[in-house]
Write a protein that binds this DNA or RNA. Structure first.
Length: 264
DNA sequence: ATGCATGTTACATG
DNA sequence: ACATGTAACATGCA
């Protein structure tokens, strides 16, 4: 489920536990989410420590703790973070549970495609400084966007938008939403775009990012009915612009939803 | 039972 | 070397 804005939402869910001592660390080390970390070292570094801050970049999350400790979290397809107040509120697939004095900070992930990582460094871990430009940032301007599409001109736009090294945070629904709003078909190649379509795509990308953050990142509410978002998975779902039934195709191995009359 | 799912990556193929 | 496609990961749901 989690893309740019969902990740930002889940990241904020651990805030009630900030600046509280982590009294207990419970984790299920059988689970694939810990494939790139030593669970022993993870427990050692977290227990008695405190979360002091957090940030996101695309679909990545990074939590800062005292003593040069950083906790990386990726939610994969079905991961989520929650703060649980009630005692004994532990649920199935709660793979990491941090006990603080006012509740439990939980990482839950049924399909286990998500990942927990540990970094030890005085400042931000080095990899974090070298992440690609964020779509919401000023350096991600039209010139930069154009250069990406030029470099990967042969690739279908849908696949291109899903590339995390270029569009960090875009997932399946956001890619479809961006293309739909720009009125461009998802199977078009980057090099086939007219200049006006290129502009429309860029504007649409910025719009969808901003809107997603506004609606979803704050309280997980759905975007308005005027978006493709609420219609795309419904059987027989209709295009909010034309009222015509939406199309489904596989592109780059992912189910893609689009509107035939609307997107050229 | 079958097929599919808002993600990533290793491997295969051209 | 490069670009794109596919299978695999593990579980739940229709």
């Amino acid at each position: 489920m989690p893309e740019l804005a969902e990740v930002a939402f889940y990241c904020s869910q651990w805030r009630p536990g900030f600046n509280r001592t982590i009294r207990s660390v419970k984790l299920n080390d059988k689970v694939r989410c810990f494939r790139d970390v030593s669970t022993r070292q993870l427990s050692l570094k977290l227990k008695g420590n405190r979360l002091t801050g957090s940030r996101t970049h695309g679909k990545r999350m990074l939590f800062q703790l005292r003593n040069s400790t950083w906790l990386g979290v990726h939610l994969g397809m079905t991961g989520s973070l929650a703060f649980r107040k009630e005692e004994g509120a532990i649920e199935t697939h709660d793979h990491l549970v941090l006990g603080v004095e006012n509740g439990w900070l939980v990482f839950n992930d049924p399909r286990q495609f998500g990942k927990v990582e540990l970094y030890v460094s005085k400042g931000l871990p080095e990899f974090w400084e070298n992440l690609p430009r964020e779509m919401e940032s000023a350096p991600f301007d039209f010139g930069y966007f154009e250069s990406i599409l030029h470099r990967r001109g042969r690739s279908p736009l849908k696949s291109l938008l899903l590339d995390q090294s270029l569009f960090p945070g875009v997932g399946n629904w956001m890619a479809d939403e961006v293309l739909w709003r720009a009125r461009v078909r998802p199977n078009r190649s980057a090099r086939s775009l007219e200049r006006s379509e290129l502009k429309a795509l860029f504007r649409s990308l910025k719009f969808v990012c901003r809107g997603a953050m506004k609606y979803i990142a704050t309280d997980f509410s759905d975007p308005p009915k005027s978006w493709l978002f609420t219609h795309r998975w419904k059987p027989g779902g209709r295009c909010p612009k034309t009222g015509v039934e939406l199309e489904r195709t596989q592109i780059g191995g992912r189910t893609t939803c689009w509107s035939a009359e609307w997107q050229k």
